[in-house]
């Protein structure tokens, strides 16, 4: 498969999504999708085109045992995060804050698709919002870069003896500090590795209120003010 030839990747992606490829070719496409962004993009586009076909099917309720088995499967697979005995143990708060992610999608679109904005080909973005769902901070990084740009889009007022600290929420385990933020303007945070690799497994970013200079313990100690899911944009 000469996937670099124009049109070939698209044609292969179309057949892959439709389901006509043999076992061997199918497996090959699945491997290539991971390393060939053009092919991956073509597959996504074809999924958007063709999978609505499935919406013509009459829904059929699966037997109740399926859900019971799923619950067994997930209990074994993902233990609850080892949350410290602080507000961070309260996953409910995280959940509530995660909801704001979608509400801010429009704001995000406005920011990113502003005509003058020059967008790198692949960008990671998180819109962090408080409980009122209003976006306050926008964090973004070029996938291959190591700088996370955090920009305040609304004023944040905190007491003089407090500091905002940015955290990467882990799928399992404790949040990891990414650094402290100035109360206004733009912060440039250096990531330990390329943003694509560092942030791809991070479901969300969050900001907590800490004593001046940042958390003394390496874990969040104050309330979570803002959070938002990490999203990839092309």
């Amino acid at each position: 498969m000469k996937l670099n030839a124009p049109g070939i990747a698209d044609a292969v992606a179309a057949e892959y999504v439709l389901g006509t490829l043999s076992a061997l070719t199918r497996a090959r496409v699945q491997r290539l999708v991971r390393v060939n962004p053009g092919l991956a993009g073509a597959v996504l586009a074809w999924e958007e085109r063709l999978l609505p076909f499935a919406e013509g099917l009459t829904p059929i309720a699966p037997p109740a045992r399926v859900w019971a088995r799923i619950l067994q499967g997930i209990d074994a697979d993902r233990a609850p995060a080892e949350a410290p005995s602080s507000i961070w143990g309260n996953l409910g708060l995280w959940r509530g804050l995660a909801l704001t992610g979608f509400a801010t999608a429009l704001a995000l679109a406005v920011v990113l698709f502003a005509p003058t904005a020059e967008r790198p080909e692949q960008t990671l973005v998180a819109v962090l919002a408080g409980q009122d769902a209003k976006p306050v901070l926008i964090a973004s990084a070029d996938r291959t870069g190591r700088t996370l740009l955090v920009k305040a889009v609304a004023p944040v007022e905190i007491a003089a003896d407090r500091t905002l600290e940015l955290w990467a929420l882990q799928a399992a385990g404790n949040p990891r500090s990414l650094g402290v933020l100035p109360p206004s303007g733009v912060a440039r945070i250096t990531l330990p590795g390329p943003a694509g690799a560092t942030l791809s497994s991070i479901p969300a970013l969050a900001v907590s209120l800490e004593p001046r200079g940042g958390s003394p313990t390496g874990l969040p100690t104050g309330p979570v003010l803002f959070s938002g899911p990490v999203q990839q944009l092309y």
Partner: peptide, 28 residues
Amino acid sequence: LQESFVSIWNNAGTYLSARSQPLTWLTS
């Protein structure tokens, strides 16, 4: 269906809302 939902549970964080409709992602 069972395998898929276990996978959805484990990988929901990688769902990229900017890339596809959620139902499209689940169906895929």
